[in-house]
Design a protein around this nucleic acid. Structure first.
Length: 474
RNA sequence: GCUCCCAUCGUCUAACGGUUAGGACACGAGCUUUUCAAGCUCGGUAUACGGGUUCGAUUCCCGUUGGGAGUACCA
């Protein structure tokens, strides 16, 4: 069977992390089955139109490494891939249902529907369902506003098999006569998905659990049209810490938010993949290519998963450590630019990245948590100062500076040797020199290995900073 | 309210019906180190409850409770 999956977001202005995971699963499933992954834009709600949203969506997807094979701008003979460009198709299909008596025109006003609900009705009362077809047609031709509703059978039930949930059953008498075509001529989601998924030959509908309750309507439509029913997989929801459906308000939900905060696409993708699924082993760090190999839709869980920022932080740390410094370089350059620190060579920055990689959580840490690589200390940490800068420190650091001056090669090994021999001269432990020097060079009490740090700074900077510190020390 | 879905450490999760219920994050202690991270070692915390079925239930069935989603001319 040819596998074709799709991600069908509505263009709200950003890509939700829940959407990212849905897209990812659909992508992984398609790729591992040599299938096709399709992007379709569901923009049938005119009132929610957002300018530039589709572009942002595509950009976020592309950033995450989820490439679609067909979609806006990538024709695959199943387009167009934007629903607002497919209006004619939906209308034709609605027409067909109307003619076959599987749908009907409804002339109820918003006010009347509200009334019905106010009177305790939880569903549409099917007021227009029995208007004779010809009468309805006349009223439509006369220009009376109307919608098209699908006829749900009076009784019986609909049972279907969901790939992640197993068998699910709904009784028809609990299902509303769903609006298929709105009075503005646009289809509702329910008509559009079914028509599109069928015409685009989607084999597996992978989507969030929030769609589970409307699935019977969709399946009934497939039956009305006489079409093959695709496989359905309803994914567990992503949750806020309070277990409600993940939403803004309780934190960032947009992929671009995480990108902006300095999370690697590798970690966001890895993290989100593990929300509701895992490969069964004990390994947790995977690249997207490895995920394609490991993923199995059968192992997707049923329970919702809380989006846990702390674990994401840890994963980001892991991925940063694994990442080649060369790949990190372009990510920190714009941040340095903002700070006005743009006089550093790639070679220098690569060394900084090498030293900082293991002690960083998000990308901006490469810039913000270690100013000393980019500027001379503007102050010296108070606590460390009283702790490490003793009256005798001045003389010791002066002596150390002299030794540094005479060093031919200024690398970490020779720096360390010089420091240790100086410590011996004064009959003190190396630590008595290391801490004061660290403070003198960086202004803060912690950071990467002192000797490596000094090597990266270079002899000139080190000596300059030592002299500056000595001024304060006196 | 009604319909549907779900239920293992605080969180993400593993466990052919047979395990001292495993791992990871977070947390605590220690080791290592010049500091901070990282790393390593150790530690505590879970099968919601009640009934069945079974020689034996985290696992299968029923109920209860709890949580969630849906209930629009939104998706």
């Amino acid at each position: 069977m040819l596998v074709r999956t799709r991600f069908a977001p509505s263009p709200t202005g950003y890509l939700h992390v829940g959407g990212l995971r849905t897209a990812l699963y659909a992508y992984l499933f398609a790729k591992q089955n040599n299938g096709t992954f399709i992007l379709r834009i569901e923009d049938t709600d005119q009132s929610r139109k957002v300018e530039g949203a589709t572009e942002k969506l595509i950009e976020a997807l592309q950033w995450a490494g989820i490439d679609f094979d067909e979609g806006p701008g990538k024709d695959g003979n199943h387009g167009p891939y934007i629903q607002s460009e497919r209006l004619k198709i939906y209308r034709e299909h609605a027409e067909r249902l109307l003619n076959e008596g599987k749908a009907y025109h409804c002339f109820c006003t918003a006010e009347r529907l509200e009334q019905v609900r106010a009177n305790g009705g939880t569903m549409y009362d099917r007021h227009c369902r029995n208007i004779p077809f010809d009468d309805a047609k006349k009223r439509v031709e006369a220009g009376e506003p109307n919608v098209v509703r699908m006829k749900i059978p009076d009784d019986g039930e609909l049972k279907f098999h969901d790939v992640v949930r197993g068998d699910v059953t709904f009784a028809f008498n609990t299902i509303d006569d769903q609006v298929l075509l709105k009075s503005d001529g646009f289809p509702t989601y329910h008509l559009a998905v079914v028509v599109d998924d069928h015409t685009m030959e989607i084999s597996h509908v992978i989507r969030g659990e929030e769609w589970l309750p409307s699935s019977p309507k969709h399946i009934l439509l497939y039956q009305y049209f006489g079409w093959n029913i695709p496989k359905f997989a309803h994914l567990p929801l992503l949750l806020n810490p309070d277990k409600s459906k993940l939403s803004k308000r309780q934190g960032d939900v947009a992929v671009e938010d995480y990108r902006a905060k300095g999370y690697l696409k590798e970690s966001l993708v890895n993290f989100v993949a593990f929300l509701g699924w895992n490969p069964g082993g004990e390994r947790e760090i995977f690249s997207i290519d490895e995920l394609v190999k490991e993923f199995s839709i059968e192992r997707v869980g049923k329970a919702g998963a809380v989006f846990n920022l702390e674990k994401l932080n840890w994963m980001n740390q892991q991925h940063i450590k694994m990442q080649a410094s060369e790949k990190i370089l372009p990510l920190i350059k714009p941040l340095l630019q903002e700070k006005g620190w743009n006089s550093f060579s790639d070679e220098y920055l690569l060394q900084v990245i090498g030293l900082m990689k293991e002690r960083v959580v998000v990308i901006p840490d490469f810039v913000n948590s270690c100013n000393y690589f980019y500027e001379n200390p503007v102050s010296y940490d108070e606590t460390s100062r009283t702790k490490n800068w003793k009256p005798e420190s001045g003389a010791q650091i002066s002596r150390l500076a002299e030794k540094f001056k005479s060093l031919q090669t200024f690398d970490s090994a020779s720096i360390e040797a010089a420091l240790r021999s100086t410590a011996e001269e004064f009959s003190i432990g190396a630590g008595k020199l290391i801490h004061p020097l660290r403070l003198a060079l960086s202004g803060v009490p912690n950071g990467p290995s002192l000797f490596h740090m000094a090597e990266v700074f270079g002899k000139e900077v080190v000596l300059k900073r030592m002299t500056a510190a000595l001024e304060v020390l006196k």
